[in-house]
Design a protein around this nucleic acid. Structure first.
Lengths: 205, 205
DNA sequence: TGGCTTTTGGTACGAACGTACCACAAATGA
DNA sequence: TCATTTGTGGTACGTTCGTACCAAAAGCCA
């Protein structure tokens, strides 16, 4: 199908196909879960033949890695959008961001299963683990940027931020997991309120 | 290989084989992870032929379910043992139990991977989800039994216990996950200290 | 012992898997 | 136009999977 000028055009063509396939893999992950993903299913979802996967990817590990990288990117973009909302009170902005991760868009079984599957898959692939850590780091940095104004330049409070972040990040993951487990909005609400109470105690107390 | 008196003896024989196979499946889950478990591997681990699995179990789902049930039982027994330690101060007893879940025995990649795999597998099997919820409920009830003396019969504090449990359970799961992610003992320690701070604020403040 | 039921070891089957491979189509540069 | 590269569709191979199936062994009771 034709030569391309070296590098640029070639990679654009290939990149398009790679992206189509990775997007299809993402949809399969969301619809059927990691356990039921297969090369044939991804190809069918993309409307392409099986050959495209071998042609554009080193293997299914490569496809999975790209798909999860793409999912992470989408989640990060969604977080970025939440960050742009304005509020005069920093603590309200912080809480709004915290709660954004638990609105109806994110509190969806199919989306959360993708995350949980990623936790599990990361145990068997250092590459996926790296992707998952990058997602964690990004979200944590956003939380930190919203938390820092709350410390009010008090060195003692600033010093407490890392420990607070360790805890809140853990609680967030746990609340997502718990929602899949119990589908109980009250538990999520309780967790968020307790998280805010902890933040206020440590940083505003 | 012989008749048994109906019911009792039969089930004891069968139960032994079932148990052997389930234990072998547990070892495979701990050594290789859910993704690399197969009927042949379990049979080899048990030192039995493939026929025993079909003879004693309805299918691999059945084996998995029994294996995870067994794992849950072991975890619960370990928790029960921690509960039996004595301390004059209820808050210290509570903290000791909280920390017991993060001592060197539990903070092990292979054991934690089993938990994470279970979270993932539970998304695809209501039976496994039920097993996982039962494990959650048991641990939660133990936490509650240790938390109740801290409320000191204050109705307001007692009313806050469920929300506190929702939060702490989530944080615990999140800290286990985070240890697999970062292998950072400091983060775990920070999470535990913040958890205790929250408990003290709500119940002892 | 003879006649059963239960247990065991092993094989075989059909399905699904990843992916290697190939013939052909399409596009491009000379 | 033609040679070459790149993209495409599809097939086929080798593996592994769960599990059905079966013959032989082993235990038990009459």
């Amino acid at each position: 199908m034709g030569q391309q000028s070296p590098g640029q055009e070639l990679s654009r063509f290939k990149q398009n196909r790679r992206s189509e396939i990775a997007q299809a893999a993402r949809r399969v992950l969301e619809r059927d879960g990691y356990a039921h993903l297969s090369a044939r299913k991804v190809a069918a979802e993309a409307g392409l033949s099986l050959g495209h996967i071998t042609y554009n990817f080193a293997g299914m590990d490569d496809v999975l890695s790209e798909a999860y990288r793409l999912i992470s990117e989408r989640l990060r973009n969604a977080s970025d959008r939440c960050l742009q909302q304005v509020d005069d009170q920093p603590v309200r902005k912080f809480e709004a961001f915290l709660r954004a991760g638990f609105d109806d868009e994110f509190l969806d079984f199919r989306h959360l299963r993708v995350r949980i599957d990623l936790w599990s898959a990361a145990c068997n692939s250092e590459k996926l683990a790296e992707t998952e850590r990058a997602l964690y780091d990004h979200y944590r940095q956003m939380l930190e940027s919203l938390m820092r104004p709350l410390a009010d330049n008090d060195p003692a409070k600033i010093a407490a931020i890392p420990a607070l972040l360790d805890t809140i990040m853990a609680t967030q993951d746990g609340l997502w997991l718990d929602w899949v487990r119990h589908r109980n909005h009250d538990a999520v609400e309780n967790g968020l309120q307790m998280t805010m109470k902890l933040v206020r105690t440590v940083l505003l107390g």
